[in-house]
């Protein structure tokens, strides 16, 4: 099934890969490792399925972490064919600038940097019709050629699935990642296969509260037990459940953080709780690493 042999070394691109046997990718990995060695925490947001809210979650996680002005946060969008981070962060139409030390990311706040292929496209109609190897090249450039500076958190928003983009990012980011996860067992298998630690699972679009009568309806009924059962089965922590709220979609379309807009809403509170879990996880890990 797998094209990377199970006993291959960590950065093996696989026998079928076009990069197989080419020294440059090995050099690139070392270079990226060097470049990102100062990033304290690298968090991947993954999901096997599309449209479950990965980008929404990534964006709000970034906003929430950056609300602590002493932390440097970056959000990297590696969804090459469907980059939605620029719009959600209110950065549509922004362009990347070249500087002496590489590409400059686009800043939302002084301590919140964003990078996406969306910033490199000429028009919102531009399609990126690329096969795997070209997408890998782009991801490599994002990591190697972007002037990220010193970072506390690098959040990586991924496309749905378990394919080229995911293998590349895992290959480049080396073994010190942490992973936040939304949805599905397949992605968990993927993490186990590539040996990524899982921070936990977020259940999104969990129930809808009618703004008129305040009754809750299950639009996407959790027929097989939902995230709760998934976490119990696989002994993973459930980080939280975020209800559907039409105001979230609106904030995303308009590129604003709904955590700032409507902090008292149940969805915003659910988000804050999840972010707290992730911060705790990261600081525990930091403590663990400094004692060993």
């Amino acid at each position: 099934m797998e094209d990377v042999p199970s006993n291959a070394n960590e950065h093996c691109p696989g026998t079928q890969s076009e990069q197989a046997g080419k020294a440059s990718s090995c050099a690139a990995i070392a270079e990226i490792g060097e470049k990102l060695s100062t990033v304290k925490h690298k968090i991947l947001v993954l999901s096997g399925k599309g449209g479950v809210g990965k980008s929404t979650f990534s964006a709000h996680l970034a906003h929430a972490l950056a609300s602590d002005v002493t932390k440097e946060v970056a959000l990297l969008d590696i969804d090459i064919c469907g980059p939605s981070v620029p719009r959600i962060m209110g950065l549509e139409g922004e362009q990347v600038h070249q500087s002496g030390s590489g590409w400059s990311p686009v800043y939302v706040e002084d301590n919140l940097a964003v990078m996406s292929i969306g910033f490199l496209l000429g028009s919102p109609d531009d399609a990126v019709i690329w096969r795997g190897p070209k997408k890998n090249g782009m991801i490599k450039q994002f990591l190697r050629d972007v002037d990220w500076g010193e970072l506390d958190y690098l959040i990586v928003d991924t496309p749905p699935g378990t394919s080229d983009e995911h293998l590349s990012i895992v290959q480049y980011l080396s073994a010190t990642n942490e992973v936040s996860l939304q949805d599905v067992r397949k992605e968990i298998r993927f993490c186990q296969k590539v040996k990524l630690p899982i921070i936990g699972v977020v259940e999104n679009m969990s129930g809808f509260v009618c703004p008129k009568c305040k009754n809750t309806s299950q639009i996407f009924p959790p027929t097989s037990g939902g995230a709760e059962k998934l976490c119990a089965d696989l002994s993973l922590p459930l980080l939280g459940k975020v209800p559907l709220d039409p105001r979230i979609a609106r904030s995303c379309d308009e590129g604003r953080s709904f955590l700032n807009d409507i902090p008292e809403s149940p969805a915003a509170q659910a988000y804050q709780k999840i972010v707290q879990h992730i911060q705790d996880y990261c600081s525990n890990r930091e403590a663990e690493q400094s004692t060993t």
């Binding site: 099934m1 797998e2 094209d3 696989g14 079928q16 890969s17 076009e18 096997g48 096969r131 795997g132 190897p133 378990t162 394919s163 080229d164 995911h166 293998l167 067992r185 397949k186 992605e187 968990i188 298998r189 993927f190 296969k193 590539v194």
Partner: peptide, 13 residues
């Protein structure tokens, strides 16, 4: 059914 298809492009093609 839980198995992830972790394939790169050429194999999918």
């Amino acid at each position: 059914p839980d198995e992830a298809v972790v394939w790169r492009g050429p194999k999918k093609t």
